[in-house]
Simulated scan of single mutants.
Amino acid sequence: METVLKYFADFTPKQLDQFQALGPLYREWNEKINVISRKDIDALYEKHVLHSLAIAAVADLPGGLQVLDLGTGGGFPGIPLAIFFPEVQFHLVDSIGKKIKVVEGVAEALNLQNVTTAHSRAEEIRNRKFDLVVSRAVAPLKDLWSWSKPLIRKGASEDRPAGLICLKGGDLAQEISESGCRPKMVNIYKLFPEEFFQEKYVVAVR
């Protein structure tokens, strides 16, 4: 948790309690359903929580925004973002049912009123539009954008983030070229100068 507090200082007592509860909760769930690798569970706050919050460091999400976390896995980046932005609505989906079970258990234990979940693939989501899609290393940018585009509400104003924001790593030149997108990229290492974040980026497509 110290790693997170190094970069974010102004949490409410409730947020602080929720963030601190993540460690024990994920440990407990991971013993039942393995969603985080054994070596990563010890570095949960750096490799999962702080990594997720890189999105919060580059995008201010106004209250009332509807955000889809596509392929949320064990709840990242959606759960940390939902704690960080309590006025924003998050819908966390994953095609693997046992992962969604963990997400539901964590959200319920934290009493996160702004989180809904679905055991679903992106292409199965019907009759719903979102302001923003977030995702972490789920698929190539080309695929992420083609899944996200039909789900994004049209006519976003300049002051509201809209489109796709994903967390990616490595050399992305070819992936970006194949996607046909012109994303804005932020080097996470410049936000959080920890060794783990070298060659990791926040990639935003409007």
Rank of each mutant, 00 (worst) to 15 (best):
F84A: 01
S146I: 00
A82T: 10
H119F: 09
L167D: 04
A56W: 15
K14M: 02
V93D: 09
A162M: 06
K200E: 02
M185T: 02
R27T: 00
R182A: 04
N127I: 10
S135M: 12
D171A: 03
K154G: 01
L22Y: 08
K32V: 00
K190T: 02
G75N: 09
K142W: 06
L53D: 07
S120C: 09
T72G: 07
F85N: 14
Y7S: 05
E124Y: 05
S135K: 03
L167C: 05
V138Q: 12
I152W: 05
G97L: 15
K200T: 00
G71I: 15
R160N: 04
P150L: 12
A173P: 00
P183Q: 07
A109Y: 13
V103H: 11
K184I: 03
R206W: 03
S120A: 11
R136C: 08
F11V: 05
G71M: 14
L53N: 05
K39S: 13
E199V: 00
R27G: 03
G97V: 13
A43P: 06
K200M: 01
G75R: 07
C166Y: 08
I165G: 10
N114S: 10
P183L: 11
E199D: 14
P24Y: 02
I100F: 06
Y189K: 07
S157W: 13
G64Y: 05
V93R: 08
E123V: 07
E175A: 08
G180F: 10
D10I: 06
F76A: 08
K98R: 10
A9N: 04
L68H: 12
Q18V: 01
L92D: 05
E104R: 13
V202D: 04
I100C: 08
V205M: 08
Q20M: 05
V134D: 07
A59N: 07
F19W: 03
H119W: 11
G170L: 06
R128A: 11
Q66L: 14
N114E: 11
V49M: 08
C166G: 08
M185E: 06
K6Q: 01
R136H: 07
Q66G: 02
P24M: 02
P86M: 12
E199L: 05
R136T: 09
